[in-house]
């Protein structure tokens, strides 16, 4: 174990600046298609490097799908897309075995999940059964069908979108399944000048076609290993524990963050530190990604609504940073 981290630390030291450049170029390139959303792009990259999955929640037509497409394209990874509907079955995602008369055997036809980047559009439109099949695969990074376990390709990155407004005919994801997404982000409307450029440009399809792959799956895996090796000091762990304790004892929340929530928080913070060009995590990294990690994991004290961003910020302000 120790050897691994030492090795990772060395790797980081070498390629930290390389990565810094890569991230900036990536953000720049994606920014040409997704106008004025640098922050969200960086968060999506952060999520990818932390080996987590991303949930984008926003109204239709805001650019969710485009973001996913651009990311897949630019990272040089295989991209598949599922449009979720209520009559979809697990087999439609995972794949099915079909009897072939000529050979006299069953042959497995892999489903769309066997890819690097999977975009599941409107995940809350599929039935709980399908949702759970998908989310299980996300967690375990393998598919078990008819007693046979098939690993999914690496890296494996799921971008799911859901529409918060359309409630008819949807099956909202329960907390346990929301928990599998490392980050949840909203895109939001573009600012005035970005939208001006967008309207002048007449859509994103032209820019999208010009995107060239800049990385390979192997590179991505390498960067992911770097992120996992980012140093976390005892003081920082203490700070994360302060945050966890606060969510558990404060009456603002229905339920506190789970230990897994804490692990995810740490993982995302590492990744963010790497993106920010550091090989160690500082409290600011945690503060930066906390709203995106905790937003879908905390319920208000009445058990009904989710926390508003402002309330999460208030939370941040009440947890002291250890000295």
């Amino acid at each position: 174990m120790k050897k691994d981290t030492e090795l990772a630390a060395e790797v980081i030291h070498e390629s930290k600046h390389q990565l810094q450049g890569v991230i900036n170029t990536l953000t720049e390139e994606v920014g040409r298609v997704i106008l004025g959303k640098r922050e969200q792009v960086r968060l999506a990259l952060c999520c990818l490097l932390a080996e987590g999955h991303l949930l984008i929640e926003d109204i239709p037509g805001i650019g969710k799908t485009t973001l996913a497409k651009v990311l897949a394209e630019i990272l040089g990874m295989e991209f598949r897309r599922i449009q979720c509907t209520s009559d979809m079955l697990p087999g439609d995602i995972l794949g099915v075995s079909v009897f072939e008369q000529t050979a006299g055997t069953f042959r497995f036809h892999p489903g769309p999940i066997f890819t690097h980047v999977l975009l599941t559009d409107e995940i809350n439109r599929s039935t709980p059964k399908t949702q759970s099949a998908l989310l299980e695969a996300m967690e375990e990074r393998q598919v078990t069908l008819e007693g046979e376990t098939r690993p999914l390709p690496r890296p494996f990155f799921v971008i799911a979108t859901q529409n918060p407004l359309e409630l008819a005919g949807t099956f909202p994801l329960p907390e346990s399944q929301l928990d599998r997404f490392l980050l949840r982000i909203e895109l939001g409307y573009p600012d005035r000048s970005s939208e001006h450029d967008l309207l002048r440009g007449g859509g994103t399809s032209r820019e999208l076609a010009q995107i060239k792959p800049m990385l390979t799956p192997e590179k991505v895996i390498h960067f992911q290993q770097m992120a996992a090796g980012v140093h976390v000091s005892d003081t920082l762990v203490e700070y994360i524990q302060n945050i966890l304790d606060f969510t558990r004892t404060s009456s603002l929340f229905h339920m506190g963050l789970s230990p897994r929530g804490g692990l995810f928080l740490l993982r995302a913070a590492r990744s963010w530190a790497l993106i920010s060009g550091r090989d160690f995590v500082v409290p600011e990294d945690v503060q930066k990604i906390l709203p995106y990690v905790a937003g879908h994991r905390l319920r208000k004290a009445d058990g009904q609504g989710e926390m508003v961003r402002d309330e999460l910020m208030a939370l941040l302000l009440s947890v002291p940073v250890p000295t």
Partner: peptide
């Protein structure tokens, strides 16, 4: 320094 403020901030 606010108690919740990190050193870089």
């Amino acid at each position: 320094r606010r108690p919740a403020q990190g050193p870089l901030d």
